[in-house]
Nucleic acid binder design. Structure first.
Length: 263
DNA sequence: ATGGTGGTTCTACCA
């Protein structure tokens, strides 16, 4: 089973690129972030024509997340619990093929001296609390998306340039670490310890051409999902296309549950 | 320290 995640920076602007990529890669599931549109304007018919169901949590102008799937999508929940006043469309969760999957668009948090940074940190705390509950179900859980957190020095081009940024500040990284200390696994790092593997390159300053990127799109897996992990790779090709998003897809391959020997 | 680009929307704001 292939599950991919892609921050598309407007599904309207990115539709041709996303359709082309789906036709080529044919993932079972694609998690989308930064739709920048509402449910009623989401291009569901175009995805349906390729065989994908869609669960969408949108809003006007900003944010917006979705789950596309060739398999039936059930038990859809929108919004991250823990703050009734939070009206930003950043979280959608559903069951696909026996796996609980979430598409996450974590707040950016910049500038750090605005209320955006505490909102990000609180959002990370809410995600921690929610992940704890999901882990108690002992189901395969896949939390994928744009976390807006650079986990380590080696996940950016030049750590010095990022040290005071909301994506790299100590509190952000500590809270991301805390998620893993709950028992979640950063799928990309299971079989790949290389530095400078990126999922985002800024539109500005020739960041793509200079490979001055950051790794901020992640798949975090519950133990039951991590046991199924076969591969997790970043597909850099879409970032080099015309009219590209500033993010590129990260792709996760899960196998079938193994039969365990009785011990 | 600033500005560089691209998205939505139409004037700034966000990333």
């Amino acid at each position: 089973m292939i599950i991919a995640s892609w921050n598309v920076n407007s599904i309207t602007a990115r539709l041709p690129n996303v359709l082309e990529w789906l036709k080529e890669k044919k993932p079972d599931v694609l998690l989308l972030q930064e739709l920048k549109t509402t449910e009623d304007k989401f291009p569901a018919p175009e995805f349906s024509a390729l065989g994908y169901h869609a669960a969408v949590f949108g809003q006007k102008t900003w944010n917006g997340v979705a789950i596309l799937s060739r398999h039936k999508i059930t038990d859809i929940k929108t919004g991250l619990p823990g703050d009734a006043a939070d009206d930003q469309a950043r979280y959608i969760e559903a069951t696909v093929n026996g796996i609980r999957v979430a598409s996450i668009y974590l707040p950016n948090g910049n500038p750090v001296d605005s209320d955006k940074y505490p909102y990000k940190l609180k959002w990370l705390d809410r995600l921690y609390a929610h992940a704890k509950k999901l882990l108690k179900t002992e189901q395969p859980v896949v939390l994928g998306g744009d976390y807006n957190v650079i986990p380590e020095d080696k996940d950016c081009h030049d750590p010095k340039l990022w040290k005071d940024d909301a994506l790299f500040k100590l509190e952000s990284r500590q809270k991301f670490r805390a998620l893993m200390n709950l028992g979640l696994t950063d799928a990309f790092r299971v079989n790949n310890n290389e530095a400078h593997q990126y999922t985002f390159w800024d539109y500005q300053g020739g960041a793509w051409q200079r490979n001055a990127g950051i790794r901020i799109d992640h798949f975090l897996l519950s133990p039951q999902a991590a046991d199924l992990l076969e591969e997790c790779v970043i597909d850099t090709a879409p970032r080099g296309k015309d009219k590209a998003s500033d993010h590129t897809p990260i792709v996760l391959k899960l196998g079938k549950p193994q039969k365990l020997h009785n011990l």
